[in-house]
């Protein structure tokens, strides 16, 4: 989708977003680090990579991760591939339904810069405009080893308190994320979609 130039440059990482490292937060991060429930939102070709990571060959449960059916219970949202505009609306709605310390992991190049569909009329190019992505796993669909590696990386970030995408979303919703979402999805208020 063409980049329009009046895109507002905000430094998202302003302020010390790292968790105020109190003892409680450090303890909470340990728990959050060890048990990470993922919402398996299969939006694209990366979805097929996840079953092997979950089942006997790579066994994601070893590191404490498991698939969850509803966003309310999930911690991490996996965007595994290109995101059409229609799916983006659902992804944003689901993201907002997740509980607070939530993380987003983008798979493959399509979430980074649109990938091979960068000039398609239907997909979005940069996921970061719409959702605070904590971790990207490179590869035009990373293999299960890469996915496992990415998850380990995410867990370390959580333990160290660096995965603060959800705070960024809270702080910069009005001035950065919401205008982007409206710019790409149209003026219609996200929640009461009529003509979809």
């Amino acid at each position: 989708m063409a980049m329009n130039n009046d895109f507002n440059e905000i430094n998202l990482n302003d302020g010390d977003l790292n968790d105020t490292i109190t003892f409680w937060d450090k303890l909470k991060n340990v728990f959050r680090g060890n048990s990470l429930w993922m919402l398996h939102y299969c939006t694209g070709c990366g979805a097929v990579e996840l079953p092997p990571t979950m089942t006997s060959r790579f066994d994601m449960e070893r590191i404490g991760m498991g698939p969850m059916a509803t966003p309310r219970q999930a911690d991490v949202l996996l965007i595994t591939g290109y995101l059409s505009v229609k799916t983006l609306r659902r992804v944003i709605y689901t993201y907002e339904q997740m509980m607070e310390p939530k993380y987003v992991v983008g798979f493959g190049s399509c979430t980074l810069n649109g990938g091979i569909y960068y000039d398609s009329y239907a997909t979005i190019n940069k996921l970061d405009y719409y959702l605070p992505v904590d971790l990207y796993i490179a590869g035009c669909m990373p293999r299960p080893e890469a996915v496992m590696n990415g998850f380990k990386k995410l867990m370390d970030m959580i333990k160290k308190g660096e995965a603060t995408g959800w705070k960024k979303y809270q702080r910069h919703y009005e001035d950065y994320y919401s205008p982007n979402q409206i710019r790409s999805l149209g003026e219609v208020y996200v929640k009461d979609e009529f003509h979809e």
Binding site: T70, P71, R72, R90, V91, Y93, T94, Q97, K191, D192, E193, E196
Partner: peptide, 10 residues
Amino acid sequence: NTYTSGEFIY
């Protein structure tokens, strides 16, 4: 505002 697998119910 409940989880309806992404759909919007009015």
